[in-house]
Design a protein around this nucleic acid. Structure first.
Lengths: 208, 208
DNA sequence: TTTTTTATTAATCATTTGTTTAGTTCATAT
DNA sequence: ATATGAACTAAACAAATGATTAATAAAAAA
C-alpha cells in the first residue's frame, strides 16, 4: 500500500487507489490475467474511473511498469556508482539492499523479467539501463583484473553472476519452500543468511 | 516443432498439432494471453477440435505443463544421481546439459517459474521434485564438507547457486542482449562460454 | 454393402472484457 | 445564489473468448 496514513487525507484519491490496486494485481497475476473489473473491485472505485484517469488498461500498465522499473533501477545504480566504497563493500551493500528490497516486494523480479520478455523496448527507454556496465563497480572489477588479483573474465559474467545468486532464489521461492518445507518466514531467513554469504562467494569466484 | 519429418506421416495428427501449437504459444505468451483461437490458427485446425480432444483450454494447458515439467525434471535428476561421476564431473555435466537444453528452448525457465507461481501445487505432484536434495550430487557435497575440503554451508544454498548461475542469465537475456548489444547468436555464444566457467566458479565458491 | 463409430466443420451461445456514454453529484469560482 | 467544470455512477456497447451444437465427412466394424 502506498497511502496507509492514519489520517485518510486527500492524497488517497481515486487515481492513487487505482494505481495501487493495479500494481498489486499486475504483480500477482500479470497483465493479461488482470481485468479492469478486478482493478475496479480491488480499489473500490467505479469501473469507468480507470479509463477516466488512465485512458486504457494498457496505458495504466505502462505507467506502472515505468515507475516500477525506474524505482528499481535507481536503487541499483545508487550502490554501483559510489566512488567511496571498495568492490567488496559494494558487494556487501548491494547484496543487502537487493535482498531487503525483494523481501519487501517478492513478486517484482518475476514480474519485471516476464513482462520485459513481451516488450523489451520498454527497458531501452530507461536511462539507467546501460549505466551498470559503465559503473564504478565494474571499473573496480576490471582494475582488480589488471592488478592480477582477479581472474580475467568478461565483466558481463561478473555482473550476471552477482545478480543471479541474489535474484534467482526469489524467483524459485515456491520450489525452494516446497522442497525444504519452509514457511515464507523461514524462506526470508534463508535469504537473509545469504546477505553475508554472497559477497564472500563472489570474492572467492573472482579471485585468482 | 515435434513432428517435422520429411514424410507427413500419421503421427502428425490433429491432437499432436494442437499440442505443439499450444505449447509454443503458452511458452511465448503465457496462459492468459493465449486464446483458443490463437491455438486453432497456429495449428491449422478447427476451433472445436481443441475441446473435442482436450475438453477445455485449462485441461490442455495442464497436460502440456505436466509433460514439460516432467521432461525437464527427468533430465535434471539423471545427472544428479549418477553414482559413477565425481562432484566436479557432475558440475561440468549439468552445466553443459542445462545450458544446451535451455538454448534449445529458451522460454522454458520463465514459463515454468511464472506459471508455478500461480499454481505451486502442480509441482508437488511431480515425483522427482524432492529428489534433488537427496541426490548423489548433494551427498557428495556433504561428504566434501565432512572431509574438510568444502566450507560448511547448507546444501540448499549450494544447489540454489548452481541453478542460479546457469538458469538466471537466460531469464535476463533480453536485458543482457540490450546492454551488451548482442544478437541471439552472440548471446548463445556467451552462454556456451559459461559451460566451462561455471564448474570452476562453483568449485572456488565451495572450497575452503 | 451397410452400419456404426470417429473425426471434422461451420455456426452459434453465453460470458467476459475493455471501453464509452449519458446523466448525476459535488466543489469551486463568479 | 448561480454557473461551470471536475469527479463520479449506472448502464450499455461492441468485440473477444471459451465452449457447445447440429450437421457432415471419413474411417472402421459389422
Amino acid at each position: 500500500m502506498c497511502s496507509n496514513n492514519i489520517v485518510d487525507n486527500n492524497y488517497s484519491n481515486t487515481e492513487i487507489k487505482i494505481k495501487d490496486a493495479a500494481k498489486s494485481l499486475f504483480l500477482k497475476k500479470g497483465y493479461s490475467a488482470t481485468t479492469t473489473r478486478d482493478i475496479a473491485r480491488e480499489s473500490d472505485i467505479n469501473l469507468a474511473m480507470l479509463n477516466y484517469y488512465f485512458r486504457s488498461k494498457r496505458r495504466l500498465f505502462e505507467i506502472i511498469m515505468f515507475e516500477t522499473l525506474y524505482e528499481f533501477l535507481s536503487k541499483m545504480v545508487e550502490v554501483y556508482n559510489d566512488e567511496k566504497t571498495s568492490l567488496e563493500q559494494k558487494l556487501k551493500l548491494c547484496s543487502e539492499k537487493y535482498i531487503d528490497m525483494i523481501i519487501a516486494e517478492p513478486l517484482l523480479p518475476t514480474f519485471v523479467l516476464n513482462e520485459l520478455k513481451n516488450n523489451p523496448t520498454s527497458f531501452l527507454k530507461m536511462p539507467t539501463t546501460k549505466m551498470i556496465m559503465k559503473s564504478n563497480f565494474v571499473a573496480q572489477y576490471q582494475e582488480g583484473i589488471k592488478k592480477g588479483i582477479y581472474r580475467k573474465v568478461d565483466p558481463i559474467h561478473f555482473v550476471t553472476n552477482v545478480l543471479s545468486v541474489i535474484v534467482f532464489p526469489f524467483m524459485c521461492s515456491p520450489i525452494i519452500m516446497k522442497i525444504e518445507n519452509l514457511s515464507k518466514k523461514d524462506f526470508n531467513i534463508m535469504m537473509t543468511e545469504r546477505k553475508k554469504l554472497i559477497p564472500a562467494w563472489i570474492i572467492q569466484m573472482i579471485k585468482k
